[in-house]
């Protein structure tokens, strides 16, 4: 492997200038980038290290909580501000990876992490996501971790992030900067379904950097949580997970947001289905109807069918907890 050139820009502007040059990749904590390199993914010839950039703040700005893109996952999870106003975010992060990885991983990198499909990671399988047009062995031979929602005939890889699922339920907005433009995308619009071009992960413009996320500080967000189910107690990606934010008034749901992880090709949320819960008491039937609606078009295989039961159980568990508090 020819070693890449490592660059250490000190300002966002300088970093963006470097990223303009073809064959350049940004590296934040490196826990995804270096992992893939070790697996034999081809390396860009230039790596731009973001660690000198000033995107490390957590602060209340207006009605939002702002978190800089380079804040580490551990710092977010242990931040008092986050714990007060967005507990689901802390819970989701703490249920992911390991303490060492969370210490290195950044918010921006977490949003942009690569999928965990075994065919994708072992570079001698065909894989549309790694090598566009080469095919998808998971379609004919899915594994227990593959997705049941948002699948396409070209890719059924599950989105791996826990943090992004919590952010989706918390209505987070991703702020970004390019060479000469900048913008905001809500997490719900951030990811692309695999469709015909599974190699395209998000709608972040080419060469742009995530600068941070903005999380609205709502009453529902304060009563939010995350539950992750998986085959072992820690250090494993979700078989199914759910993030929710709930506000009840006189026993009736007045605000609810529910996002699922581990089951779909992107963090998954359905606003229309949520609307069916509003103005009613939380009941087993209502929750079941909601889940049935979410799963109505699920692409089920014998390897993945258990995800329905897991998602249902996780949803009941979490909503019951949030309703109690």
């Amino acid at each position: 492997m020819a070693s890449s050139e490592w660059l250490f820009p000190r300002t966002t502007k300088a970093a963006l200038a470097e990223l303009e040059i073809p064959d350049t990749t940004a590296v934040a904590g490196g826990t995804t980038v270096l992992d893939l390199l070790k697996l034999g993914f081809s390396s860009s010839s230039r790596l731009v290290d973001l660690s000198r950039l000033d995107m490390r703040e957590i602060a209340v700005v207006g009605r939002n909580l702002h978190i800089g893109a380079m804040v580490t996952n551990s710092t977010v999870a242990r931040s008092d501000l986050v714990l007060q106003s967005h507990p689901a975010l802390s819970e989701a992060i703490l249920m992911g990876a390991s303490e060492q990885i969370r210490n290195a991983a950044s918010v921006g990198g977490n949003l942009m992490q690569a999928c965990r499909c075994s065919y994708f990671r072992a570079t001698d399988w065909p894989c549309n996501r790694r090598q566009p047009g080469s095919g998808c062995p998971a379609i004919s031979n899915p594994m227990a971790g593959h997705a049941v929602l948002g699948t396409s005939p070209h890719c059924i890889a599950t989105h791996p992030s826990d943090m992004a699922v919590a952010m989706l339920a918390l209505d987070a907005m991703v702020t970004w900067k390019g060479q000469d433009n900048e913008g905001v995308i809500s997490v719900s619009d951030f990811y692309r379904l695999p469709g015909k071009e599974p190699h395209l992960l998000s709608h972040l413009p080419e060469g742009a950097l995530i600068t941070g996320v903005e999380l609205p500080r709502t009453r529902a967000a304060r009563n939010s949580g995350y539950l992750k189910l998986r085959g072992r107690t820690s250090y494993e990606f979700a078989s199914a997970s759910v993030a929710a934010a709930l506000e009840l008034a006189c026993g009736e749901v007045c605000s609810v947001a529910i996002a699922f992880g581990g089951v779909a090709t992107v963090p998954w949320r359905d606003h229309e289905a949520e609307a069916t819960l509003l103005g009613r008491p939380l009941s087993t039937e209502a929750t079941n109807e909601f889940l049935d609606r979410i799963m109505v078009n699920a692409d089920l295989r014998s390897e993945t069918i258990h995800k329905i039961g897991l998602a249902r159980g996780a949803l009941h568990h979490l909503l019951e907890r949030l309703a109690r508090s």
């Binding site: 075994s118 072992a122 031979n141 594994m143 085959g231 072992r232 107690t233 250090y235 494993e236």
Partner: peptide
């Protein structure tokens, strides 16, 4: 009993989880 299982791709007979990211063994918390 809880998690270890190596699986083979039926057509190529290749082990799919031939690494410790995909082949789960107990962690302390288990």
């Amino acid at each position: 009993a809880l998690m270890e299982e190596a699986t083979r791709h039926p057509q190529t007979h290749r082990i799919l989880n031939d690494n410790l990211a995909d082949y789960a063994v107990p962690v302390h918390a288990d």
